[in-house]
Design a protein around this nucleic acid. Structure first.
Lengths: 346, 346
DNA sequence: CTGAAAGCGCTAACAT
DNA sequence: ATGTTAGCGCTTTCAG
């Protein structure tokens, strides 16, 4: 005993018949082409409503040669890392990127196709998928600087854009934030608050963004007359922030200011400071980076450098659509300016 | 000055000509249909290789009435929560689900389409997308128990499956882990370790899984002669684990055993115990839940209840494909058995 | 401003 | 075992 087959969904033909016009006219109405009598337009809309018509993507795609979807590729450096997807998702950062992209794309009726490119084989499959037309283009979020995928995509002539500047120049569009400038904001602020013994917790130093934040911070501090700033390297996780702060406290018990390279680690640092009886911001001033949800969840609320991830992701999606629309388009990079959000931790 | 249009990619026709056979034969070879002479098969493969042919998804989709993709829907309860995607991704849990699904689907050449259904409007759009054929079916991951989407999908007759049992019965397939049994494993283990003052940190109590873990733990403890177990409610985040542990320690300074409803919170609890000078496992034994990457990242490594998320997600994907393949298929639920992974924290 | 007609590339009867 | 043929539902010239 089988269930009845689902009723065939209405086609353009059905709508056309119901409206007493031709398929072509209905198509024009649907695709918002002018030059259609407004009375007829109204009739067509009626017919669409009564028939419950929805356009068939595959059919449309076949003739327009567009899938109307883009790939969201989460890409690593190589190696067969089993826990790869988990790692990526553990940082709120990826969620913000996904949210920004979806926010831009959804009103345009397009959903991202999720792909992972953590190994060489996976990378090859992503390339094949794109060539096959599973998506019109790709937004890449790399977890490692040495990721070969950007170059591969560029060479294949597939429309693609990147979140964050590649380690080596690749002819591909990207967005990034001015990490150095952001770190300078933090440095200026801590100095303005009269802090004398300032230290920092960096992100993983094989990530260019981490390097830039650290270098920018040290340069700005040097300009303020602090030639050397102690640093503990973290891994962008809450836990690593805890560990880094403990190390710094042990080595520099007199510290009175900390710049932490992301909010999640800053949250961990805050906890350690509290457990060690250091009042924030009175004894120790803390500045984070990102302005993620962690920043306001903290006690005290975190002063932090705003990283406009969602805006950047939306802009990235816009860029990709532009590239898809005009294949000859030149690579463009857009650098966003960070700003300081002063709350209670400094 | 425009760039040259990309060369048209080869079609079945081209391959057929190159191999000196008909389109149909090439199609058969590609789709792995027997009844093709092996010599001809070889010739066709040659032709495919030399022409660099890749099948056109849209064309295939148009005739098979299958898109070859499924939706991965992250779904909330309602409300216009701006930070929705961020919240969801913050837990390693979602990454494990995504990884499990991709692991199963990728070898079959199918990629998940990412959709968010956090508001009523978004939900409607997800439904429309599915009806329109953006995907053949949906895997749902709900963040709230009252999520109306499962029922809506079931009523629309769209193939869909659920990660975790719905709060109210819905005729839809799902996978889940036996939370109560897992909690019992933890209880038995703590009692066997001779702990007398046992407390627990639960997940958010509006989540059925949290309720089940708490109830299962308390029931098992009662059976061991501990009629009441103090509980602090957390939110499945590291930070909430810290806060909950601090509360428990303040209220029950004599505690010597803790069951924490997920590893991330357990990691936070471990930190607090250390800061308070309690040795783990000697002074206080700690048992987590999930066996996520956090469990091995801890010091000491966490004894925890294994939640086979990846396996469950893969099974869920398999179930969905089954439903897509045979529309009349009855809803099935599969409950996985948890197991205890003993490490150093108890 | 609207309709007729020609495909897009593929699969699946149906013939042979 | 292989070829022929008829569409799948849509967009898009091209006529009118």
């Amino acid at each position: 005993m089988r269930q009845d087959p689902p009723p065939p969904s209405p086609t353009l033909e059905d709508v056309a018949r119901a409206a007493g016009v031709s398929r072509a006219t209905v198509s024009r109405v649907i695709n918002g082409i002018r030059n259609v009598d407004s009375a007829i337009q109204e009739a067509v809309r009626q017919a669409i409503a009564t028939t419950g018509y929805v356009p068939n993507r595959a059919a449309r795609s076949l003739v327009t040669r567009r899938t109307g979807s883009i790939a969201l590729v989460v890409s690593g450096a190589g190696g067969d890392d089993d826990s790869f997807p988990v790692q990526v998702f553990a940082d709120p950062f990826f969620g913000r990127v996904a949210g920004g992209i979806v926010g831009f794309l959804r009103p345009r009726g397009i959903h991202p196709v999720l792909m992972f490119a953590e190994t060489g084989a996976a990378r090859a499959q992503v390339l094949a998928s794109l060539r096959q037309g599973d998506a019109d283009g790709a937004v890449l979020v790399s977890t490692h600087a040495e990721d070969p995928l950007p170059r591969l995509l560029a060479e294949a002539g597939l429309p693609a854009v990147l979140f964050a500047r590649p380690a080596e120049p690749v002819p591909i569009s990207y967005v990034d934030v001015d990490h150095r400038a952001g770190a300078k904001l933090a440095a200026d602020h801590l100095v303005a608050r009269g802090r004398k013994q300032i230290v920092t917790i960096s992100g993983p130093l094989d990530v260019p963004a981490s390097q830039a934040r650290l270098a920018g911070f040290r340069d700005a501090m040097a300009a303020h007359g602090h030639p050397y700033v102690p640093c503990a390297e973290g891994g962008f996780t809450y836990h690593s922030g805890v560990q880094a702060m403990e190390r710094l406290l042990a080595e520099h018990p007199g510290l009175d200011g900390v710049f932490v390279a992301n909010d999640l680690m800053a949250q961990g640092a805050l906890l350690v400071l509290r457990h060690h009886g250091r009042a924030v911001p009175d004894d120790v001033a803390v500045v984070g980076f990102d302005d993620s949800s962690a920043a306001t969840a903290c006690r005290p609320a975190l002063t932090t450098v705003r990283h406009p991830v969602e805006d950047m992701a939306a802009e990235l999606a816009r860029l990709l659509l532009e590239h898809i629309g005009q294949p000859g388009h030149r690579p463009t990079s857009i650098i966003f300016e960070p700003s300081l959000v002063v709350r209670d931790s400094s």
